[in-house]
Design a protein around this nucleic acid. Structure first.
Lengths: 109, 109
DNA sequence: TGCATTTATGCATCAATATGCAATAATCTA
DNA sequence: TAGATTATTGCATATTGATGCATAAATGCA
């Protein structure tokens, strides 16, 4: 069924697009092993507070982050730890690509 | 070493950004189990020939596709089959996310 | 209630990407 | 060599996404 595959592909590309932004990746890694208050995240980033807020929102909308309100503060955490397997996988792929390219560069001499 | 991590993160996000475009994902899947001539790819896509050419170029630049010239034709193929493990991984992640959200929606009733 | 603190949103701007048309480059064939 | 075929590139436009400032919304506290 082409219609279904198309939907899946659309969703898939949306996930990748979300991950395809360095600031958002940085946020994921920052939250990897601990929930953090936005008030702790902001000072650790160079972008404006509003920018960070939007990036966090996108990550949450995609279902990668969870948020919890406590008084006036908001705490973000990893909603789906499996995302880090995806990131590891990507890094592994990049490693093999870089190695292959290095090998080909040598062979081309 | 922050500098190195930063470089890795930059590369990682670039890979994800490349994958974060439906047409490019479609091209990868199309080439999954066979090398194809651009002359066969183009008619299968709705975008202009020049657009496809550029997408193929980006995928090759990232090291995901290989190209081979034969006469006036160019054949593209998967350079790194491991990319499909990444795609499977992404689909698995999306599945668990969707399932979780469905569960939460029920619990919220 | 009034004020302070924290996060999200409206809005404008800038930057990056995707797209299509036209032209070019490369190669084959008559 | 002239013409045909195939893929890439130059260029302009449109779309999308990122950014920061100012403001609003939500909550806690005096």
């Amino acid at each position: 069924m082409t219609k279904v595959d198309e939907k899946k592909l659309e969703l898939e590309s949306r996930l990748f697009a979300i991950l395809g932004q360095p600031t958002r990746l940085r946020l994921l890694y920052m939250l990897r092993d601990r929930e953090l208050c936005v008030c702790k995240i902001n000072p650790a980033m160079r972008e404006d507070q509003s920018v960070i807020s939007r990036h966090l929102g996108k990550l949450r909308d995609m279902g990668l982050l969870a948020s919890r309100k406590e008084g006036v503060s908001v705490y973000y955490s990893i909603a789906e730890p499996a995302v880090f397997e995806l990131l590891e996988n990507a890094n592994g792929l990049l490693r093999t690509i870089v190695e292959r390219q290095a090998r080909e560069a040598v062979e081309a001499l």
